[in-house]
Structures are given as structure tokens and as C-alpha cells.
Design a protein around this nucleic acid. Structure first.
Lengths: 234, 234
DNA sequence: GGCTGATGCGAGCGCTGCTCTCGTCTAGAG
DNA sequence: CTCTAGACGAGAGCAGCGCTCGCATCAGCC
């Protein structure tokens, strides 16, 4: 029967949910390498081997957490951006950047898991790439909206021109998240995007220790500077 | 006696050197979490507990490797930059950026250890901060040289101005690696610096998978774009 | 009502970082 | 030259880890 089968499935889904929740809490306090299947099992009052009925390996559990992380930061960015007036492109950009930073500061270990060094020996599976693009979609939308509205500033010719080999990449980006945007702005968007995460990572991983004091204010300035690479307006 | 004491010290230093060398080789193949004190001991024909005569803990060995990593990337950047004509500020910048990327591609696990997520539970000790600044010094020197030579372009007023709270930070930077450079260029230097590592990290950690094809060419373009944030000339 | 598959348990394997004790050997003091 | 303190390596052992396997149980299906 459907009802009974789903009853079974339901308790299974609930257990999976509980495992990931406990795992995420452990991840938050101990970090990725401190996440222990046995500890999760202990906290659930199970024996460690029982976990393997739900996750085939520790790596698989980590993959689930990574996907959750992408979705969490993606949701945060989407929400922050949606709260801005659509025409305020610079404001949307800054809000989205701040959302990334705030989420990273609130969940440093999850950020490290998702955007830091990949866990050695761990290869990101297919199913991560969808959620991974969620924040990128938002940033792309902002830049694309601004460009299509004719709101982007004219950019000086770059010192090192956009390489011709980037053309197919830009075309692919136009097909997805950067509709109608010319190559050089698509390239700038990627640079700004990665630069943003460099800014966050440097702050989070301690490279700004004894260098930058008021990190929130500095971040705003940096995020705006990176945005200006794409011609985002004042 | 001095001679005999140094004889003792010498074999000790040699053993420490051998341990770190084997550890670095293991780090290169297995990654940070795969580095095992016992495996190092095995490879040396020692028993695992003997390692503890030379390194108080695995974290301490990792710290040594981190310092070596900073020094290695620092040396690579210094060498690449020194090979350029001193007046060719843009060329020096690009060469330094390429040196970082090339070193990272050649030593991905060491790069991840040094600039990726800090190993959880591991707090960077004092003795890492000196070597950590070595690459930064080079980048600072390039930007400072260009500015003091009057070779930097005038920058448009940033959309989000440099925060007043950054002034003491800029002063501190002027005292060390960015002599005479005004606040807004010092801030831009930090942004470009962190952005550079964002670019390298994104490439190395797979965020550019299925997005950027010709990564070397794209990197050159991106590095130049980041450099232009500081007003580096064409 | 009997069968089947999902589930949980417990033992166990091989690995890890780290500690402690014990014998050895050597450098330096008297 | 002898004696002692300290450096050193070996080995056993502890607690923890990921993961596997066999066994009992129990719910849902024919």
C-alpha cells in the first residue's frame, strides 16, 4: 500500500534528516575533519554501523552537508537581494555580497567546507553543481539586469584584453545566467565573483589578522570595488 | 665542546629535515588529512613514538609545513618578480600573479594547506605570520614602486569610499610594505591581493569547472583587471 | 501465515594520534 | 677515568576512527 510504504519511507526520511542535522551541528563546532560518524551515532543512541543503512560513507554524508551549505548560502543571497529595489543595482550587489559574508561569518566551518579547500581525496559529485550555482545565479542576474537596463558604466579597455578563448565560455554564460551580456562584462563578472570569495576567505581564514581592523566597513568598500569591475553604476 | 655538541645537534637537525621532507611528500600525494605521523615514521624505519622526540604533535609538524609553504610561494613570487625590468610595473605584477598560480597548480595540497581552509582546531601560531607576509611584501613593493614613480593611473572616486576606520590600517601598511601610498591605493592593494587568491582558489578548488576553459589566459586577464584596481599602468 | 527485505546490534579489522615505561648510549662534570 | 644526567629509540598500550560482516528482529507483502 502507498500509505504503509510511505510510513516506512517517512521514518527513514526522518532519520536521514536527523542524522544530517546532528552532523551539521557537529560540523559547526568541530569542523569537517572533526565530524565523526560514530559521534553522530552516539548522539542518536544508535550503534555506529547503523548509520551505514542511511549513508554509504562519511564522504557521502559530507556531500549532503555541502549541498545543504550551497543551498543555505544561496537562499541567504537570494533573500537579501530580493529585499532591494530592483533598479538599485549597486544596492542589490552590495546586499548580495554582504549576505555571503554574513553567512560565512555565521557558519565558518560550513563555508570552509563549501568554498575552502576540498576535502582531500574527495571529488565533488555531479549533484553538487546545481546548488553550487545558486549564489552565482543571483550575482549574474544583478549584473545582467544592470547591463540590459543600460545602467552599467562604460569600462576602460582592459590592459590585458579578454582572451579569444573565453568566447565560448561567455556564450555558455549568456545561455544561462548572463543573458545578452558581452564577453568582457561576463569575464569581469567572474573576476568579481571569485574576488568576492577571496575577500571573504581572507577575512575568515585569518589573512587579514593584524592588517584590517574594521572588516565590515572594509568589506563593503571592497565589494563595491569589485562590482565596479563589471561596470555596476553608482 | 662545541664540536661534539653540534655533532649531536647536527644529526638532530638532519632528522628533523628528513621528517619534514617525507611529510611534505606525503602531503603532496595524500593531502593534509592524509598526512600520518605513523606513515612518516614507517618510511624512516622508526617507530611512531620516536617522531615525538622531534615534533611534539602532528599539528606542530603541519605548522612547519605551512611555514615552508609560505616560504616556497614567497620565493617563487620574489624570483618571478625580480626577473622583470623594474620600470615595467604591469609586467612585474603579472609575473608575480602568475608565480602564485603556477606554484599553486604545482603544489595544490600545499596551497590548500596554506591558503585554503585552516585545518580545524588548528590556530596559526605566531611564527607563521612572518613568512606569511612574504608574498604580500612583493605585491606591495610593486604597487608602491609604481605609485612613487608616479606611474599609477588616476582612479575614479570609488562608489563606496574608503572607510575612515581604515586609516590606521593604511598607516601601518605605509610603515611596512606600502611606503608613502595613500589610503585608497592601500585599500585597493588589499582588495587586489585577496582577489588574486580568490581567482587561484576558485580555479584550484573546482569552482571554474565547466565555466572557464582556457584558465591560464583567463587568469592573466583577471590578474590584470585586479591590478588595475590599484591604478597599475598599462 | 509464511516469506522477504529493511533495520539495528555487536564484534572485529586496521588504522590513527598520543602516552608511558624501559633499556641504551653518549656527552659532559667531577 | 668514572659517574651521572639527559637524549634517544623501542615497544606496549589506550582511545578513537571508518568501515565490514554476520546475526537476530520485525514490519509489510503475497
Amino acid at each position: 500500500m502507498n500509505a504503509s510504504r510511505t510510513a516506512r519511507e517517512r521514518v527513514r526520511a526522518e532519520l536521514i534528516r536527523e542524522i544530517t542535522e546532528i552532523a551539521r551541528r557537529q560540523l559547526a563546532t568541530e569542523g569537517a575533519t572533526g565530524l565523526s560518524l560514530r559521534a553522530v551515532a552516539r548522539e542518536m543512541g544508535m550503534v555506529s554501523s547503523a548509520i551505514y543503512r542511511y549513508f554509504p560513507s562519511r564522504d557521502d554524508l559530507l556531500t549532503t552537508l555541502i549541498i545543504d551549505g550551497y543551498n543555505a548560502v544561496g537562499a541567504a543571497v537570494e533573500k537579501a537581494e530580493a529585499a532591494c529595489p530592483p533598479q538599485d543595482y549597486a544596492g542589490r550587489w552590495l546586499a548580495a555580497c554582504r549576505a555571503v559574508r554574513n553567512w560565512a561569518l555565521a557558519h565558518p566551518h560550513e563555508y570552509a567546507l563549501v568554498y575552502g579547500s576540498p576535502v582531500p581525496g574527495y571529488q565533488a559529485p555531479e549533484r553538487t553543481i546545481g546548488p553550487a550555482s545558486r549564489p552565482a545565479v543571483v550575482f549574474g542576474k544583478i549584473i545582467g539586469d544592470a547591463y540590459r537596463a543600460g545602467a552599467t558604466a562604460d569600462l576602460p579597455a582592459p590592459r590585458v584584453p579578454v582572451p579569444a578563448s573565453f568566447a565560448p565560455d561567455a556564450a555558455r554564460l549568456r545561455d544561462t545566467i548572463l543573458e545578452a551580456v558581452p564577453d568582457h562584462i561576463a569575464a569581469a563578472a567572474l573576476i568579481a565573483w571569485s574576488g568576492l570569495f577571496g575577500l571573504v576567505s581572507f577575512e575568515l581564514f585569518g589573512q587579514f589578522e593584524n592588517v584590517v581592523t574594521d572588516r565590515a566597513a572594509f568589506f563593503d568598500h571592497g565589494a563595491a570595488g569589485l562590482g565596479s569591475l563589471t561596470g555596476l553604476p553608482a
